[in-house]
Amino acid sequence: MERVTDPVAENPHAHPDEPHVDGFAGRLNWLRAGVLGANDGIVSTAGVVVGVAAATTAREPIFTAGIAALAAGAVSMALGEYVSVSTQRDSERALLAKEKGELRDDPEAELAELAGLYEEKGLRPDTAHQVARELTAHDALAAHAEAELKLDPDELTSPWQAAGSSAVSFTVGALLPLLGILLPPAHWRIPVAVVTVLIALAITGTTGALLGGASPWRPTARVVIGGALAMAVTYAIGLLVGHTV
């Protein structure tokens, strides 16, 4: 369960507009991952439907291929994220269990280790030992998990949440090229789909860059050019296959 606290109450010197609430960095990472998932859905589905549209003007094959690409991509993203995050969560739990055992078996050595970590961060030895003693008295496992493992025992990543968010973000992204190529008349399908995809990629590229604190120009240019190249390749393949098969 996510722990939500009042940043001003816990730190009277914190500005109320600053993101000091626990889990803010984690939520920012999830948002960034969602943007990347949507970007994957846009590019992969666009490549499929543009390639099929280059081979045929019939709506049914384009729709079938697009839906298949959307479903397969969403399932693949969800499964991959679930396996990856489950493995990470298992590793984190193992590390926390090991740390808990060390605290139980040799608390004095663990206290000295924690004080040493704070000394390495710049605290004077007496201050570091005082901080270590107070944090250990409050919550020894949380103190060691944060200082040694960079983990919060109460906020381990959920594999189900990761899988669900990946599937949803991929699906939302995939719907854009699918609708862009199905809704217009036959002679406008590919141009409308290409414009829709490039605009969507520009938005996801800019959003992802801003969330990461980077200038948006180069990241946005990379995803837009990459998406354009992907559609160009699949369009060429669709033309070739459509005229030879």
Score class of each variant (00 low, 15 high):
residue 10 E to H: 14
residue 11 N to V: 00
residue 12 P to Y: 08
residue 13 H to A: 01
residue 15 H to M: 05
residue 15 H to P: 11
residue 16 P to C: 07
residue 18 E to D: 13
residue 25 A to Q: 07
residue 26 G to M: 05
residue 26 G to T: 14
residue 27 R to Q: 10
residue 29 N to K: 00
residue 31 L to K: 12
residue 32 R to Y: 02
residue 37 G to E: 09
residue 39 N to W: 12
residue 39 N to D: 15
residue 40 D to I: 09
residue 40 D to P: 03
residue 44 S to A: 14
residue 44 S to V: 01
residue 45 T to M: 03
residue 49 V to A: 11
residue 49 V to Q: 15
residue 50 V to N: 04
residue 50 V to W: 09
residue 50 V to D: 06
residue 52 V to T: 03
residue 52 V to A: 15
residue 55 A to E: 10
residue 60 E to P: 04
residue 62 I to Y: 15
residue 63 F to D: 09
residue 69 A to H: 11
residue 70 L to E: 07
residue 71 A to E: 11
residue 71 A to T: 15
residue 73 G to Q: 12
residue 73 G to T: 12
residue 78 A to I: 02
residue 79 L to A: 13
residue 83 V to N: 08
residue 84 S to G: 03
residue 87 T to E: 12
residue 88 Q to M: 08
residue 89 R to N: 10
residue 89 R to M: 12
residue 90 D to F: 03
residue 100 K to G: 01
residue 104 R to D: 04
residue 107 P to S: 10
residue 110 E to T: 12
residue 110 E to V: 07
residue 111 L to E: 08
residue 111 L to D: 05
residue 112 A to P: 02
residue 113 E to Q: 04
residue 113 E to V: 09
residue 114 L to D: 00
residue 115 A to S: 01
residue 116 G to P: 02
residue 119 E to Q: 06
residue 119 E to G: 13
residue 120 E to G: 09
residue 121 K to D: 14
residue 125 P to Q: 04
residue 125 P to E: 04
